[in-house]
């Protein structure tokens, strides 16, 4: 089952999800390489979230297959879950727990031994420069810090792939830039980053970008090649050309 370093870390083949008569995801196929930053774009309702839920084992495909780290997600969701990290747009921290307690809780549910979880926690707080916040409840720390903490926690168990669902919602541009630096660092250490976003400037930071329209992947390439293909100055124009209804 173990895949070799050369084979893709995420493979979707004809992945389909139907809700009754409505096809939310229509036979999409793509591959993501190890260590890649993969941008997953699309308008609201285009099927991004549904596709991501199938990749993370939260939802069962109607047909087609998704493999993550060489494992069939629908057949062995529990094995896949050990290999992936996930951060939702709500940052998913417990506000009435302290920073340290949050770290230790998430470490614990991923089976990190108590001692190791504590060590990883102290290390993480030091890396983030959050010593001042360590014993504070999360409700009392600024949004930008929560976002960084949430991302670091998603990486705590050293997953092969980390899924980020609109990780920069509601955060100011400076903090967004800092956050993308963290994403680059993670990718450099070999973690694959699968990220959905609304911000087209962020799409430029991705290695490759896929744009979903009406349940299908309308375009998939590096930002540079997409811009030249659509003769657009930036990703925003590419996105508009694809998603705007044809005259």
């Amino acid at each position: 089952m173990q895949n070799s370093p050369q084979s893709p870390i995420i493979e979707a083949s004809k992945l389909t999800k139907q809700f009754g008569a409505f096809t939310a995801v229509d036979a999409i196929s793509f591959e993501v390489e190890r260590g890649e930053i993969f941008g997953f774009l699309g308008a609201n309702g285009a099927g991004k979230t549904t596709a991501m839920r199938m990749l993370t084992g939260l939802s069962r495909p109607t047909s087609g297959q998704a493999r993550v780290a060489g494992i069939d997600v629908a057949a062995h969701p529990e094995k896949v879950k050990q290999r992936i990290g996930y951060m939702s747009q709500k940052f998913s921290l417990y506000e009435d727990l302290t920073v340290m307690e949050n770290i230790r809780f998430y470490g614990g549910i991923y089976g990190l031994p108590r001692k190791q979880a504590r060590q990883a926690g102290s290390q993480l707080i030091e890396q983030l420069g959050m010593e001042a916040f360590a014993r504070k409840q999360v409700s009392g720390i600024p949004l930008g810090w929560r976002q960084k903490l949430s991302f670091s926690i998603a990486l705590l168990h050293q997953p092969d792939v980390v899924f980020l669902d609109e990780p920069t919602g509601g955060v100011d541009p400076v903090t967004r830039r800092q956050f993308w630096e963290m994403i680059y660092q993670a990718a450099e250490t070999g973690t694959t980053v699968f990220v959905t976003t609304h911000y087209m400037d962020e799409a430029e930071y991705c290695g490759r970008v896929s744009i979903m329209v009406d349940g299908q992947i309308a375009a998939l390439d590096t930002p540079d090649r997409l811009k030249s293909e659509f003769q657009a100055a930036n990703m925003h124009e590419v996105f508009l050309q694809l998603t705007r209804p044809k005259p």
Binding site: E78, I84, Y86, S92, Y106, Y110
Partner: peptide
């Protein structure tokens, strides 16, 4: 509501 349920469901916890 907090979105933590999703994270828990993505985790290996049954």
């Amino acid at each position: 509501e907090l979105g933590t349920m999703e994270v828990l469901l993505v985790s290996p916890l049954p």
